[in-house]
Design a protein around this nucleic acid. Structure first.
Length: 263
DNA sequence: ATGGTCGGTGTCCGA
């Protein structure tokens, strides 16, 4: 099974790029984040034509929005909510092959890395804490589960272009990294990409739109992740970070797809 | 040290 995850930053604007990903990489399951479309307006047509007829979506107007698009039938699906909000950041599904998939969009957290003065950063930390408290009872390490998405945190030194410069930049601050570590430890999640690309090799999945030349400056961060339960660790067969997609015409997402082959 | 660019929406907000 080939699974891709991508923060697409508007699925309607970038449907042609999503179809390119599907044509060129032939994933069986695609997890999306920032679809930015209410469920009633989700563009199912072109995806169904290519076999993605099984979908679990949770979308809203303007902001956020997550989806699981699958060629494999779904046995069940859920749209969990966190922090007493229905802001479309989490959707899950159990595939007919028994694998459970979660598509997750963690709050970005704003600019100021202080939860006392920045409500968005407080929300980010609380979101992680709630998931961390929920996971041990919901996700058994001996079951096949995949967690994929934009976690908006680059936890390792080699997940950012400059570790020291980003220590006080939201996405790489010690307090967030510690929270993400607690979430990972709560289930014993295995970081799939780092199984194939161990430190200190750098891996990025996001480059800011604000750089004049993202490729030349290469000031990236690894914000998008695929985690698997220990039950699936042995089944990890390969991975791909589609760096080239950051240059896809005409309008690339600022995130690139991450692909993992399982089993 | 600063500001830089996107998308969706509506004349700003979130990233």
């Amino acid at each position: 099974m080939r699974l891709a995850t991508w923060n697409i930053n508007s699925v309607r604007l970038r449907m042609d790029l999503l179809l390119r990903l599907i044509e060129e990489e032939a994933p069986d399951v695609v997890c999306l984040q920032e679809t930015k479309v209410p469920d009633g307006s989700f563009p199912h047509g072109p995806l169904a034509e290519r076999g993605f007829v099984h979908t679990a979506i949770a979308g809203m107007k303007s902001y956020n929005g997550v989806a699981i698009l699958s060629r494999i039938p779904l046995a069940s699906a859920a749209q969990p909510n966190w922090c007493e909000r229905t802001d479309c950041r989490h959707v899950s599904a159990v595939l007919a092959n028994g694998v459970e998939v979660h598509s997750l969009y963690v709050p970005a957290g704003g600019d100021e890395p202080d939860p006392v003065v920045n409500d968005k950063f407080a929300h980010k930390l609380r979101f992680l804490d709630e998931l961390t408290a929920w996971m041990p009872g919901a996700i058994a390490p001996d079951r096949p589960v995949v967690l994929a998405g934009d976690l908006n945190i680059a936890p390792l030194e080699s997940d950012v272009w400059n570790h020291r410069a980003l220590l006080d930049v939201v996405s790489h601050t010690p307090v967030e990294v510690e929270r993400l570590g607690a979430m990972q430890a709560s289930v014993g999640w295995v970081d799939a990409v780092r199984r194939f690309v161990p430190e200190p090799e750098r891996v990025y999945t996001w480059w800011s739109y604000r750089a004049s030349d993202w490729e030349a400056s290469d000031r990236g961060r690894r914000l998008d992740h695929v985690w698997v339960t220990p039950a699936l660790a042995h089944a990890l067969k390969g991975h791909k970070v589609l760096r080239a997609a950051r240059g896809w015409a005409p309008k690339p997402s600022d995130h690139v797809p991450v692909i993992v082959d399982i089993g």
